[in-house]
Computed example of a mutant assay.
Amino acid sequence: MDIQALKDKLNSKEYDFLRKDSHLGDNILILTTGGSIAYGTNVDTSDIDIRGVTLENKQDIMGLSDFEQFEDKSTDTVIYGLKKFILLCINCNPNVLEILGTKQEHLLVISKEGELLRDNVELFLSKRAIQSFGSYATAQLRRLQNALARDNYPHSEKEQHILNSILSQMEHLQRSYKSFTNKEISLYIDKSDRQDMDTEIFIDVNLKHYPLRDFKNIYSDMNNIVKDYSKLNHRNSKKDELHLNKHAMHLIRLLVTGTEILKGKGVTTYREKERAFFLDIRSGKYSYTEIFEMVDDYENEFKLAAANTALPDKPDYKRIEELMLDIYSTTLP
């Protein structure tokens, strides 16, 4: 979609929430494209994803109110509160870092404070990107492998696939939410009492004084892996095949973007150089055998960049806090 046409669309009634919601309107620091449009891998049937950052109000920061993000599912719009956004950036979360790396012409709203965030993206980049981007890519690979699993695989082997996918995300979950140990949340396979299963995944939870919202999000992330496996494992149409190709494309995109970050080249969301290649993957030009061979090569590049990266072990919290205070002090009444 033409960016000007997209800007015009945001002025329609469908997006009235951008102007009417008390947390949005003039509080928006960044509003930009997300998903395939942001990556440059969109096709005619691609959805419009909108992502952004907004400033919490005074009650959220100093009072009893609590605001983390605004979401409108009908338009696939997600706008993070500044504090949550920065906390996710500190953990090198790919979904939020890409907001700071979109093309300048893809910025639908940008304030001077939003520009300040984008200009200081390097403050958030650390060796945590090894886990966050590597973990996301591994998750994509697991999903693709799971979807390609033959129908005659025994259920126990399919269940092990799902467990491996969840376990590969555990370190990411421990970084994204309040930390927990593998003893406090433990997953394993055991005999099932269900009539349709010989074995299934079980979970032991032994948490005390743990934030309910964090636990809800952990469970939701795990549950999404289970649901994704179920969706992708029942391939019976051309639409499903295209869905798998899209996952393969995103797997390689994550490895390419993560490798650049680890090499000190910053965050580049729009993949101009690889755009034609990614679209070829999406359209089914390559077999899955070829894709897995390419993944091996890109994964080796990622590991080499990780082994030689000059990024710090963790971000500079003091400078990030100063950036936050600078933004809050200039915007809050």
Rank of each mutant, 00 (worst) to 15 (best):
T309Y: 12
I37W: 04
N27F: 02
Y188E: 11
D316G: 01
G266F: 03
L18G: 02
M62N: 12
K285S: 05
M197T: 02
Y317F: 09
S186C: 14
L254H: 04
E290H: 09
R142E: 12
L262H: 05
E115L: 10
Y210W: 03
K285E: 10
L88K: 14
I252N: 12
R235P: 01
A139K: 13
K263Y: 01
R213W: 13
K183C: 01
H155W: 12
E115I: 01
D26A: 07
D196S: 10
Y219K: 12
K318M: 13
K58P: 02
N95D: 14
A38E: 11
F202D: 02
G134C: 05
N224H: 10
M1Q: 02
T268C: 08
G284K: 07
I218R: 08
N182E: 14
L88Y: 09
C92L: 03
T77W: 01
K314H: 12
M197H: 15
K158C: 10
I189S: 09
D8S: 09
Q131K: 07
Y317G: 00
I327W: 03
V267T: 05
T199Q: 10
V226R: 11
Y328G: 04
K84Q: 12
L141C: 10
D313Q: 12
A5M: 11
D72W: 04
L163V: 06
F278D: 08
I162T: 09
D16A: 15
N57Q: 13
T268K: 15
S74F: 03
I61P: 13
S176Q: 13
D196H: 06
F302T: 01
G63Y: 13
D193R: 11
G34L: 04
E299I: 00
L100F: 07
E260T: 06
L207F: 05
F277M: 11
I3C: 01
Y298L: 15
I3A: 09
A276Q: 08
R213S: 13
D198A: 15
E113P: 04
I252W: 06
L88D: 14
N217M: 15
E200P: 00
S283H: 09
Y328T: 02
D26L: 02
K314G: 01
N182A: 04
S126I: 13
D49W: 03
V43I: 15
A5C: 03
L10Q: 07
F70H: 11
A38L: 03
L125V: 09
K265A: 14
A137G: 06
D193E: 13
F70D: 01
D240T: 07
L10E: 06
T331S: 15
R19V: 06
D16F: 08
E322R: 11
V96S: 05
R235G: 10
K191W: 00
V205L: 14
T75D: 02
G264D: 07
I281V: 15
I281R: 10
E241N: 08
T257A: 14
T75P: 00
Q140R: 08
Y177M: 03
S168L: 12
Q131P: 00
D76K: 15
K303V: 02
N164D: 14
T41A: 13
T33V: 15
G284N: 07
N42G: 06
E274L: 04
N95K: 06
L117D: 09
R150Y: 07
V96L: 03
D2L: 09
T181W: 01
A276P: 00
H161S: 10
S132H: 05
S132D: 05
N236T: 06
C89W: 08
N300T: 03
